[in-house]
Design a protein around this nucleic acid. Structure first.
Lengths: 134, 134
DNA sequence: GATATTTGCAACCGGTACAGTTACGTAAAT
DNA sequence: ATTTACGTAACTGTACCGGTTGCAAATATC
């Protein structure tokens, strides 16, 4: 697959389901379209379901569906649904004895957090329904 | 060591050298302070030297020194000195046949670029000399 | 009830990235 | 010549991730 694939795959999938919200899609189908593996798809989509963006049904005629209207799901929702953070703020819990280190941690990670927030805010301005008309 | 250590180590080291710019520090000394290994320190500091932020002298009484005044080095300089990008914009060159994918790429990666710029901009507002007084 | 389909999940493989470590070469001061 | 310290290459261990396989559980169809 390609780089940054988790977010990319999530967005791609949601955008397509937004195209035709009634249609139920299997992970196999999605995987073929995305050029990857059904299990990988499920792994990514698991998180979107946990975040309440998708629902899945097992068994015959099962598959994946949008949990709410495509206009009610923003890029920020998708972004937040990944549990990972791109900023990677330290958080090892080990308190350094070094004062400079403390000051750095506070300043830099605070700064990156701010940026993170503004990023998510901007992503929130676009719903997955309108991505195609970008 | 800890996560995000390259940037962290770079910033930490530079902040300390900014404290007393005349003093020459060996990688062993820096490594001990940072709780890591001299070779690791040199690897990270290599990039800072390539970026013109530090100089190094070999041999007896050699070591590392600031290449310019601590007020002329910003956090953005350090951030840029790492060659890596945190955003990881796709760039595999493979053109997808999927129009939605195209639109997504354009919109999302454009947005991430913006954020990257604003991040660097904000980091540029602080010099390593003033980090301690945060 | 048997069968086919599809998610759910765990285990494992292969590749990549990185910190850590060891070892050795090179340069400079004493 | 010796000592010091950078420069660099090689190897290790770990972590993460995409890919893959296998199997259990659930559900629709026959």
């Amino acid at each position: 697959m390609k780089r940054n694939s988790r977010l990319s795959l999530a967005l791609h999938t949601l955008s397509h389901t937004a195209d035709d919200p009634e249609r139920v899609r299997t992970s196999t189908e999605i995987a073929e379209h995305a050029g990857t593996n059904p299990v990988v798809v499920r792994r990514v989509l698991d998180r979107l379901r946990a975040a309440g963006l998708l629902t899945s049904e097992r068994g015959h005629a099962g598959g994946w569906c949008l949990a709410r209207g495509p206009r009610e799901i923003t890029l920020a929702d998708v972004y937040r649904a990944r549990d990972e953070r791109l900023v990677a703020t330290d958080e090892t819990g080990v308190a350094s004895a070094c004062l400079v280190e403390h000051a750095l941690q506070r300043r830099v990670s605070g700064m990156l957090e701010d940026i993170e927030h503004s990023r998510v805010e901007r992503l929130g301005e676009t719903s997955i329904a309108e991505v195609r008309h970008a």
